[in-house]
Amino acid sequence: MIINEDSVIQTCGLTKYFGTKPAVYELNLDVPRGCVFAFLGRNGSGKTTTIRMLMGLLPPTRGGGTILGRDIRALTPEIRSRIGYLTEEHQLYGWMTVRESGEFQSRFFPKWNDKIFRGVVGHFGLKPTAKVKDLSRGERAGLCLALTLAPEPELLMLDDPGLGLDPVARRTLVESMIYLTRKSDRTIFFSSHNLSDVERVADYLAVFDRSILRACCPLENFRDSIRQMRLRFVGPPPALPPIPGLLQAIRTDNELRVTCVQNAGEMEKTLRSLAPLEIEPVPLSLEDAFISYLGERGEKTFILSELEAQA
């Protein structure tokens, strides 16, 4: 495997089986240095398993990878201290105060920037003297983030950092992530289900589907390559010819809505051959694009007249 100096994470055929079931299958991932990389996929698609393997916490069944240029099977404490790893089940002690949690954590890191710790804690509106056990979910998340950021890691691995946060706490989290990009060599790798947050912060995205990586590219490329067209006909739409990259076709009484992954010109040419009355591109939001990419594929019929007949 060729180690690319500009990549912070690279994997080659990374695979993990639990019993006979693959949780991650033949994953080839390349995360460029300095980007904000969103790791997307439905629940149980293998995101956390991947992150745990990358952190050296779970041995791969086969394949391998590097993180900050080191083999993930042989990570030293020195390498780990350069990675800020935020998990759902971050270790906090209820009897400590916010400040004591910071002091405790700082002893494990050679580098500790208390200004950052206090800054993030303050940003989330936490009192240093508050007991951890009295914090709300959003406040705990803020404390965990402060503990993760204070050692000034060059790579942040955030496993679903927005999970369970209210909108205000989530926005604060996103603000902190944007603030972190001030240092251009810092990389943020995060998994999320929240496409609104992803749209705000991510440069790159990877889409995981049932243990297989289905897309890995700059966010705008992902958006640009998923296209939807609406075709109107006099009567019922004709049968669809084979279209490469077809994601979904929905037909109603006299309309056909086709979503594809391909170049728009090519798609329009194929669809024009059906001789529709009208054909127009339908702009998609990131969420629409994501759902048509991961949702059920194929042709669907949605005949309005049948519904009306039943009513």
Binding site: L195, S196, E199, R200, E220, R223, L284, S285, D288
Partner: peptide, 10 residues
């Protein structure tokens, strides 16, 4: 606004 049909840069 996020979730729009128009990308943020646009």
């Amino acid at each position: 606004s996020t979730g729009s049909n128009t990308p943020i840069y646009q």
